[in-house]
Write a protein that binds this DNA or RNA. Structure first.
Lengths: 243, 243
DNA sequence: CGCAAGTTTGAATAGCCTCAAATCCGGTGG
DNA sequence: CCACCGGATTTGAGGCTATTCAAACTTGCG
């Protein structure tokens, strides 16, 4: 479903993908690790449901969350090529994964070149997001960083059809947000209050509401071009209908 | 030459690569742009000589350098797949580029699968570096950030055989370093003095000397595993001889 | 020799952090 | 149904890190 955003796929291609993800699934409980640094996973894990994150830990315990994985995202792209993981992937909520054998992927891509292109697009987008995160932590103020993160998570979910109007899930603790944007928990809390009192968002009970997306985007210098939306698929300003 | 680190290549494969890079070269002067945000380059640019950087600029002028490109690095991986560049690439020193037609790459990879693997390895490593940069700016102190950057640039150059003992080029101004690690120029200057007076480095006149690499690595929590060195190629602790 | 770019220094200030404690909330067991 | 518990959020106060602004100094280059 997610790959559809990048290239129109035929029914046959979609069936092939479906077959792949249904072979073997795995459930990981909230806060448990999906893959740990140093592992050399023999299968490719794809998130089907729930939220996960990539993170790295320094020797003294400092932790940086370097990516959020939503349904459709691949946990271990590098598995077939690099020897071992240089970071961990943890479950934020309870996560359902598809475990895909490396060989079956190779075969799939040899058969359906359009799938390869869609997956390339996806991989390149995730690199692009990583770059934007570097900008976020390196240049933006606390207010902008936090707002930017919320914008991104909202827009990414909207792309997946997971938003309800201006509302989306946000199953993160303030401590996790802090480890994402390189701030202390205390300061995240205070900055959240700033965003709230500016009338831009509401946040509470695992739910985020963005009251004025355009205003928020402007206030935090959020330019969604790095998400590479709307190539052949749906556009940012035409969110898919809800089920 | 750089791809040799990732997979042993046959003479035939090397010849094919050489032929590719000699077709058409281009020279860009120091401080000029190689590719600008919004461009849709029709060729793939590979750095043959000199230093370049990827960077993003915010509307109000703040700039973040998000990667350094050394000889062998590809400027625009995404060109064949994504529509347009979401960031710019600028020349730090005068840079010599090879301009490679997209089609000839496709043909090359169809013919030599080992090359594909080497290039995948390379691409995945650059993503891994990007992740580490996020950690660097997000979690480390000024002292650690700066030391970490210097370690990385030294080790990457050593891998290319561009170091002389503990010495390597460093053609960056303090302003560029500042935009890389998210600090002000003033503070970069002061932190450099800290590194110097700790006896760890000397820096001046475009040249960096690392006096005690292991000590520096420990002091700034530099763990080179994210560079994915020494798979089949040379190892970190056995730098190649100089010409 | 003189200019411009880059580096270095000083001083005052702002932003964010740490520590510590209080409050809120969701889930559990009595 | 209520009391309790632990995790998460919120508040306050003081301190450190890094910033800004401004000026002096150094260096490379024409």
């Amino acid at each position: 479903m997610k790959l559809e955003h990048y290239a129109r796929l035929s029914a046959e291609e979609k069936d092939a993908l479906d077959a792949l993800t249904q072979v073997r699934t795995r459930r990981v409980r909230s806060r448990d690790d999906i893959i740990r640094e140093g592992d050399a996973p023999s299968v490719i894990n794809v998130v089907l449901e729930g939220w996960a994150c990539r993170y790295k830990t320094l020797e003294d315990g400092r932790r940086q969350i370097i990516a959020y994985l939503l349904p459709g995202d691949v946990c271990d792209f590098s598995a077939p090529v690099l020897r071992e993981m240089d970071h961990s992937v943890g479950a934020i909520t309870t996560v359902t994964l598809a475990e895909i054998a490396v060989e079956s992927v190779g075969h799939l891509f040899a058969t359906y070149p359009r799938l390869t292109q869609a997956l390339c697009w996806d991989a390149l987008t995730s690199v692009s997001i990583q770059r934007e995160w570097t900008v976020n932590v390196g240049q933006r103020t606390a207010f902008e960083r936090l707002g930017h993160l919320l914008c991104e998570l909202f827009v990414r979910q909207r792309l997946l059809g997971l938003t309800r109007g201006g509302v989306c899930d946000l199953p993160l603790t303030q401590a996790e947000i802090a480890d994402t944007i390189g701030l202390s928990v205390v300061h995240v809390n205070r900055t959240l209050q700033d965003l709230r009192s500016a009338g831009l968002i509401s946040l509470g009970g695992r739910e985020l509401t963005i009251h004025r997306l355009e205003a928020l985007q402007r206030a935090v210098l959020f330019n969604p071009s790095y998400l590479h939306l709307g190539h052949e698929g749906r556009h940012l300003d035409a969110p898919p209908p809800n089920p």
